[in-house]
Simulated scan of single mutants.
Amino acid sequence: MKNYVQPGNCVTIPAAAVTASGDVVVAGSLVGIAAGSGAIGDPLDVEIGGVYDLPKVSALAIGIGDKVYFDPLTKLVNKTSASNSYLGVAIAAAANPSATARVRLNSSF
């Protein structure tokens, strides 16, 4: 195919903020994990599939298969959809209290 560009598992976008490797990145409907670090405007590789351990609200129990969301203000995973970006689903239980949730990213928008 003449118009094929790439598989799309990792995309490169301009960093909207100072970003560290492993940070959750939200750009409109695109949600993924920074594969490297970057300053504002730098090209930033963003993984949009896979499974990641991400920081969560400590006082929250998450079950296997629960939908999880990212709160851009607290930079934590939670189960609240209002004002948050959909990340994917939990693939392991996370107790209350605990620091992280194991999340399979939703790679389709």
Rank of each mutant, 00 (worst) to 15 (best):
Q6T: 11
T100W: 04
G50H: 04
A39D: 10
V25H: 01
G22L: 06
S81H: 13
S107G: 14
K56M: 06
V46L: 04
A95I: 07
S21E: 11
I40K: 12
D42V: 02
G22Y: 09
L73P: 01
V11K: 09
A92S: 14
S108T: 13
I64K: 05
A59K: 12
A20W: 00
Q6G: 11
Y52T: 03
D66N: 15
P72G: 10
K79A: 13
G38L: 08
S85I: 00
S83A: 15
V77I: 14
V24D: 03
A34P: 05
T12S: 12
I62M: 02
N3S: 12
D66L: 01
K75N: 14
G41K: 02
G38P: 14
D66A: 15
L87S: 08
L105W: 06
M1D: 10
K2T: 11
N78R: 02
G32M: 08
K75V: 02
L105I: 14
N96M: 04
G49L: 08
L44Y: 03
Q6E: 10
A35I: 00
S85Q: 07
A59H: 10
S37Q: 10
D45L: 11
A82C: 07
S29W: 09
K75A: 15
S37G: 15
N106T: 05
A99W: 03
G41R: 04
T80I: 15
Y86G: 05
V24A: 04
V25L: 03
Q6W: 06
A39C: 06
V103G: 03
A94L: 03
C10G: 08
S81Q: 13
G28E: 03
A34Q: 05
A95T: 14
T19G: 00
G28Q: 01
V24H: 03
F109M: 15
G49K: 12
I13W: 01
L73Q: 12
A20F: 05
G38D: 06
V51R: 12
L76A: 05
V46K: 02
V51C: 14
S98Q: 13
S98Y: 07
V25P: 07
T19F: 02
Y4I: 12
L76Q: 12
E47Y: 04
V26T: 08
V18C: 01
S81C: 05
L60P: 14
T74H: 03
A15I: 04
S107N: 12
A16M: 11
I48L: 13
V103D: 01
L30E: 06
T12K: 10
A35M: 12
A35G: 11
T12L: 09
V103K: 00
T12Y: 07
S107R: 12
I48E: 02
N96F: 01
A39R: 02
V68W: 00
V31K: 03
